[in-house]
Simulated scan of single mutants.
Amino acid sequence: MSALARATSAEAAGAELVLVPLGSLEQHGPHLPLDTDTVIATAVAHDVAAAIDAWEVWVAPPVAYGSSGEHQSFPGTVSVGTEALTHQLVELARSLRTWAARVVFVNAHGGNVAALNASDELEWVPCANEPPLNPGADLHAGFTETSLMLHLRPESVRLERAEAGNTQPLREILPAMMNGGIAAVSPNGVLGDPTGASAAEGERVLGAMVADIVGRLS
């Protein structure tokens, strides 16, 4: 396994599997960087590739712009529409499959799911972050994502700015969120509470995500 961007054309020949991390560039509250989802997707993809040592696996550069319209009222968010994202991912998959046997997108942003499900040409796996895989998970920029970033790139976490947001279950806030985006249900953009987040918890969650995807791909 190697990063595809560093390979030569001859080295990439005969690839059995290419993993394409799929993230976003969107607000993650006052304390997490805009590329949080992309960082997580990339780390998961590389760890999955390392775990599948029986195959010839490559990890492509991430698709860093996702469908994040629900976050658009927050500065820093850069989003593409669902239809545009589907088109881009289909084109990428078609190109990759001219020389790779299998292409799988590793998705770390819920807003991308509609685009991924819009075409039967796309195979994808989630960086799953909900019970029973992660019993204590919250929705966005809370305990779970803060812990992951403390493990993966701690220098990007502004813990001194961390604050709780809306901690209601998704089913209770979804109608308002669908109509008015994240800002309608959480003025600070957080859906959860980062209190108590730790690198150790992030490492545990990352390992659970990787094991889940390895099982899905086997």
Rank of each mutant, 00 (worst) to 15 (best):
L170M: 14
L22G: 11
V78M: 11
C127F: 00
E70S: 15
L122Y: 06
A7N: 07
A118H: 02
G215C: 02
D193I: 08
G81K: 13
L150Q: 12
E83S: 15
T167Y: 06
I182G: 05
V63Y: 06
T8W: 11
L191W: 03
E130D: 13
G142F: 05
R97E: 13
A183G: 07
V125L: 04
A50S: 14
P126M: 04
E145A: 03
G29I: 01
A10P: 01
V113L: 13
W55R: 15
N166F: 05
A45V: 01
M178W: 04
G215N: 11
H31K: 11
D35V: 04
P131M: 02
S73I: 00
H87V: 03
A13C: 04
S2N: 12
P21E: 07
E203W: 02
P61G: 10
P75N: 13
L191P: 08
G69T: 04
G23W: 10
H31E: 09
V125T: 07
G207W: 08
F105Q: 05
D35A: 14
V214A: 08
A43K: 05
A183V: 06
T77Y: 00
E26R: 04
D37W: 11
V113A: 13
A118G: 12
A200K: 12
P75H: 14
C127W: 00
L34C: 12
E11Q: 15
V185S: 10
A197W: 03
A45E: 06
A64D: 09
L96K: 04
P187L: 09
V210P: 01
P131V: 00
P132I: 02
A208E: 14
I173H: 13
S119L: 01
V205F: 04
D35G: 13
R158Q: 13
M1K: 03
T144S: 09
S68E: 09
A128W: 14
N188G: 13
V113I: 13
S24G: 07
S67F: 03
A199G: 14
T38S: 02
P62D: 10
A199C: 03
V80K: 05
L148S: 06
I182E: 06
V18C: 02
L32C: 12
P132W: 10
R97Y: 07
N117A: 15
D37K: 03
W99H: 10
M149S: 06
P175T: 11
H151Q: 07
